[in-house]
């Protein structure tokens, strides 16, 4: 029993934190980690930026974002015999299974997930060089994209942020 009530410290007075994720992969299993961590950061009121580059562009390309695949090839963590992994149909099967597992956990698909992040105030940036390389236009990419940046501009934006490369 104490006099002053015990009240959680939500850290509202703390200095504002900032975090950024560089998403460089376009496979299903490598797309989720960045998004899940970004979601966790946003829920804690942390200013969050995601920079999509190279194969990570598939995560925000309207044509591909809903169809990312998971391949067991070269991934010993699937515990599948290595010789079987490259067989036709394996990637489709593994992707289907992973999507099912995610769905069972109520994890949204990539487009829905990105929309959820945007609702929480997440900033989404596309890499200029990748946009040029894959010949993408603004219409090809997710609605509400914050912009296309070169590396220098991105560095300015994330000044003072913790950064994770995925």
């Amino acid at each position: 029993m104490t006099d002053a009530p015990i009240v959680p410290d939500f850290g509202d007075d703390e200095e504002d934190r900032k975090i950024s994720f560089v998403c460089s992969k376009g496979s299903l299993d490598m797309a989720y980690p960045g998004l899940i961590m970004a979601s966790g950061a946003l829920e804690l009121g942390i200013e969050t930026h995601i920079f999509f580059t190279f194969w990570g562009m598939d995560m925000i390309n309207k044509k591909t974002m809903g169809k990312l695949k998971f391949s067991p090839v070269g991934n010993p963590a699937t515990h599948m015999p290595a010789a079987l992994a490259p067989f036709p149909g394996m990637t489709t099967m593994a992707t289907k299974q992973m999507n099912k597992q995610l769905e069972d956990l109520d994890i949204p698909d990539i487009p829905t997930f990105l929309e959820h992040l945007q609702d929480m105030g997440c900033h989404l940036w596309a890499c200029k060089m990748s946009v040029d390389m894959f010949k993408l236009t603004e219409d090809d990419m997710i609605d509400g994209l914050d912009g296309v940046l070169n590396v220098g501009e991105f560095m300015e934006i994330i000044e003072g942020a913790q950064t994770m490369f995925i």
Partner: peptide
């Protein structure tokens, strides 16, 4: 937050207005 919006029908954006900064915990 995701469940409150997907199942409860309350948009995530408004959760951030109602319970600023750390809506899930608050």
């Amino acid at each position: 937050l995701r469940r409150v919006s997907a199942v409860g029908g309350i948009p995530t954006k408004s959760l951030f207005q109602l319970f600023p900064k750390k809506p899930a915990r608050k």
